[in-house]
Write a protein that binds this DNA or RNA. Structure first.
Length: 674
DNA sequence: ATCAAGGTAAACACCT
DNA sequence: TAGGTGTTTACCTTGA
């Protein structure tokens, strides 16, 4: 987790670095306004205005730095640190304000200088830091804005180049396009800010007004505070007003443009109000996203206005915009609706948090180590862990203390398809040594593979089966029940995302298994050597696992009896919360049914094996294991078959519980065994 | 502690 | 000769 947060910080830092050199991006947006106000050749105007703004900003920065230097000199002359910072506040306000006026991130050197020479009081430093954070946030956005602008300019250039007649219409179209583009930018900006908040940067905005500014309020009059905030957020405000000034839409622009600066700052920055008043403005603020996004159309879809309770039909997007402006203008009704919507969202978020917590508890209970407490528990991880057979408690604990022996292990996350697997979840599934379903001599059943194949195809999760089982499955799935080595390879890679990596490792293992296990028979074919399965031999593998522990057997059977209820309970649990997750549609694969089915199969296998051991003479095998006639070994079987006591291979004696009711063909008792 | 089973790595031989 | 295939061995981990 620490690493992740560190990464985030780092990435933010890099963004900041980029942003620091791109402080003019924001200005470009501002200049865009001017260019667009002409309505003619915005692209050109943008450039000139842009330059002007850049120059202005540079000048402002110069002024700020000079002031800082002056302040430092004053500080040095006047005898340095004074215990009462507030005494010097009138003088010290200057650099703070100036610094805030300049949407430039103070360089680390500058900051260090300020800190070392104690130019500012702690409170002011706090403010300065917050201001810097705000600027950094803005700069992160600026990169995006610039791209948007470029798109915008391209768009306009295309329009200009294309059509000469109907010029006025074109202008109108362009303006609309501008509006849409800008509104989209605003929306994305807000989304970005929100996401930043939800990441570690959250403290910046909510914390800003409450904590750091409070001390300042003691020494500064409200207008100064407002001015400060206005300055801090000037760029942001400019952004929004830019978009709005030229928008025919009824947005907060109406307020902004007609409001006093102080009000502007309050509106554009809900944090501007230190305490109580915020609640008044917050709904307005929250209502913005609903009102001002055209392109991303959160309120528009399928030709219908999706404003809560509206559902007005709008033929096209422009009519939707008109409708939005006319019907959902900034009024009491809209505000109230927004409040309601906010509550809905809050409720949903609460519910989500609860369910996340519940899932975490479930996973903890199942000993599924979530190495990533930060991220939500991964359903697939859970699924896989459980699917990895009864070994949920067996496998997971190993996964951490147990370092993979494979040097080629690093598994990079692959989020393919609809899978919701994330990096963290993927990291938990390295090449871990563990016993899989084979332990109980439960080879993968066709049903198992079929039910989970989509999952394993997409999720880079190690399949919970032994190589032998997988090889066997691959061979049995083939039409002729025989495969070349390369075809086996292909099956592995086709069926399991996991095996699309580390080929050197697992291919070697496949070959090793093919050679090692007598159940795999190499047959010289016309086109070369193919591998087949000696089912009898396969059944003889590792026969003695769960040996006659009555209590265990009983438990297993009991568990099995609860399998269906378990499945139902799981589904009910999900349904209870109205969570459509874990469905094939949303996750891509592993359904609860599969999960429960996998558990059931595991239990089946265990019981099956138990039964086989109980009735020593007839190790009844799962019918699914004796699916097809098996090629007989060409070579004579190894006489010293180590599994002597279990050479009593038998025909079906399987429990009726098995839901794999394939015909168990009479297997010739292997007399070759000795 | 021991053993069996499985996973991984590697060496080696053979073949194309 | 390189690469694929097949065999074998060694070592490790895990669970019984």
């Amino acid at each position: 987790m620490m690493q992740e947060s560190g990464t985030e910080t780092k990435s933010n830092g890099s963004a900041i670095q980029n942003g620091s050199s791109g402080g003019n991006h924001l200005l470009e947006c501002g200049s865009l306004r001017e260019g667009r106000s002409n309505g003619e050749t915005p692209a050109v105007d943008v450039g000139t205005a842009d330059l002007a703004h850049v120059q202005q900003q540079q000048q402002a920065l110069q002024v700020a730095r000079q002031l800082l230097l002056q302040q430092q000199q004053q500080q040095q002359v006047s005898g340095l640190k004074s215990p009462k910072r507030n005494d010097k506040q009138p003088a010290l306000q200057v650099p703070v304000s100036v610094a805030m006026m300049t949407p430039q991130v103070i360089t680390p050197q500058q900051m260090q200088q300020i800190l070392q020479q104690q130019v500012l009081s702690p409170q002011q430093l706090q403010v300065l830091l917050q201001q810097q954070q705000a600027l950094m946030l803005q700069q992160q956005l600026q990169e995006f804005y610039k791209k948007q602008q470029e798109q915008l300019q391209l768009q306009l250039l295309q329009q200009h180049a294309g059509k000469q007649p109907k010029e006025q219409q074109q202008v109108a179209t362009q303006q609309l396009a501008f509006q849409q583009q800008l509104l989209q930018m605003q929306q994305l900006q807000q989304q970005h800010l929100l996401s930043l908040q939800r990441q570690g940067l959250l403290t910046i905005q909510p914390g800003q007004p409450a904590l750091p500014l409070q001390p300042l309020t003691q020494g500064m009059i409200p207008t100064e505070l407002q001015q400060l905030w206005k300055e801090v957020t000037s760029a942001h405000t400019t952004e929004e007003t830019t978009g709005n000034n030229h928008s025919s839409l009824d947005l907060t622009t109406t307020c902004v443009s007609s409001s006093a600066p102080s009000k502007t700052s309050l509106i554009m920055n809900p944090h501007a109000s230190t305490n109580g008043q915020l609640s008044v403005h917050t709904p307005k603020r929250e209502s913005l996203p609903h009102e001002e996004h055209p392109h991303s159309h959160p309120l528009y879809g399928h030709g219908v206005c999706k404003w809560p309770g509206c559902e007005a039909v709008c033929e096209d997007f422009q009519s939707f915009l008109k409708h939005l402006n006319s019907e959902h203008a900034l009024d009491d009704r809209s505000t109230a609706q927004c409040r309601v919507q906010m509550q809905v969202v809050q409720q949903l978020e609460l519910q989500l948090a609860k369910d996340k917590e519940r899932l975490q508890a479930m996973m903890t209970h199942l000993h599924v180590k979530s190495t990533e407490p930060k991220t939500a528990p991964q359903p697939l991880n859970l699924v896989s862990s459980v699917t990895l057979s009864k070994s949920a408690s067996e496998a997971s604990p190993q996964s951490l203390p147990h370092t993979p022996t494979t040097p080629t292990a690093p598994i990079t996350p692959v989020t393919q398809g609809p899978s919701v697997i994330t990096t963290t979840s993927m990291h938990t599934v390295g090449p871990i040594r563990r016993r899989y379903s084979d332990k109980y001599n439960v080879p993968i059943s066709s049903a198992d593979i079929a039910q989970n194949q989509e999952f394993y195809k997409n999720a880079e999760v190690r399949p919970p089966f032994t190589y032998a089982s997988l090889i066997r499955q691959a061979i049995l799935e083939s039409p002729e029940k025989q495969l070349t080595l390369n075809e086996i390879y292909n099956w592995f890679t086709r069926m399991f995302a996991y095996f699309r990596r580390n080929a050197a490792t697992w291919k070697n293992a496949v070959r090793h298994n093919l050679s090692l296990h007598k159940c795999f028979v190499r047959v010289e074919n016309v086109k070369g050597a193919v591998w087949t399965v000696d089912e009898v031999e396969f059944q003889k593998r590792r026969p003695q696992k769960i040996s006659g522990n009555p209590s265990l057997i009983k438990n297993m059977q009991t568990s099995h009896a609860y399998c269906t209820p378990l499945n139902a309970a799981l589904q009910a649990s999900m349904a209870e919360n109205s969570i459509p997750l874990y469905t094939t549609a949303s996750m891509g694969n592993p359904t609860l049914g599969n999960l429960a089915s996998a558990i059931r199969e595991e239990l089946n296998g265990a019981m099956e094996h138990t039964n086989s051991n109980e009735s020593d003479s007839s190790p009844g095998r799962s019918p699914l294991q004796a699916v097809h006639p098996v090629h007989v070994k060409e070579e004579p079987l190894d006489p010293e078959e180590a599994e002597g006591p279990l050479s009593l291979v038998t025909t079906a004696n399987h429990s009726p519980d098995f839901d794999h009711d394939r015909d168990y063909e009479d297997e010739p008792v292997n007399e070759d065994m000795e």
